[in-house]
């Protein structure tokens, strides 16, 4: 095939000015309001740590914290973050990764940023473990490599170091 066909083209999408707090720093950008936050972060803001695994809210690879709570950024239209706080994997302190590193929390790494962001939320809120197990809390992050033990144990160790109480999550099963 060598010929190229010509036809009409749709109108340019409207853009919106959006201000929010990104990893602790004020950010302003212009983007189509329905753009996925995931794409905004990856392709517009140069933060490719957040991954796409499914694009439909199943895998959690795209997890970021929105006002401190984990959300699937593939399901968040960017206009929804106006005036809110977004935290991505890039904001987390590498010094906090030691237990995950030691326990084999990561293998291929594709699920890992999402896993670590969710884990960071759990370890900051040990009170969650009074009502949920770590397995319950991590159920939104699919991992195809580890069978999950390396993830669960990494979170357990991190909680323990931070003095988290032994809620039901400390019993694995």
């Amino acid at each position: 095939m060598s010929q190229r066909k010509t036809a009409g083209q749709g109108a340019a999408a409207e853009v919106l000015r959006i201000s929010f707090t990104l990893n602790g720093v004020p950010a302003t950008l212009e983007a189509p309001p329905s753009e996925r936050l995931l794409d905004t972060l990856r392709y517009r803001l140069g933060l490719p740590g957040t991954k796409e695994g499914c694009a439909e809210g199943e895998c959690g690879a795209c997890t970021v914290l929105l006002d401190g709570l984990p959300v699937d950024s593939c399901l968040v239209p960017v206009y929804q973050v106006r005036g809110r706080r977004v935290e991505t994997i890039e904001a987390l302190d590498p010094a906090d990764m030691a237990h995950y590193h030691a326990r084999g929390t990561t293998q291929c790494g594709a699920c890992t940023p999402g896993v670590v962001v969710t884990a960071s939320w759990i370890v900051r809120h040990p009170e969650l473990l009074e009502t949920h197990s770590i397995r319950d809390l991590m159920a939104g992050n699919l991992c195809r490599c580890t069978g999950y033990d390396g993830i669960i144990e990494g979170v357990e160790d991190e909680l323990e170091e931070r003095g988290g109480t032994a809620g039901p999550g400390m019993h694995r099963s």
Binding site: R42, G49, E52, H101, A102, T105, T106
Partner: peptide
């Protein structure tokens, strides 16, 4: 020995093909 590229993966710095600047 700990996984050598482990920290890079855990901190989201590992660059997969779709992450490379182009």
């Amino acid at each position: 020995m700990l996984r050598r590229e482990g920290l890079s993966k855990l901190t989201g710095r590992e660059r997969y093909v779709d992450d490379l600047p182009l």
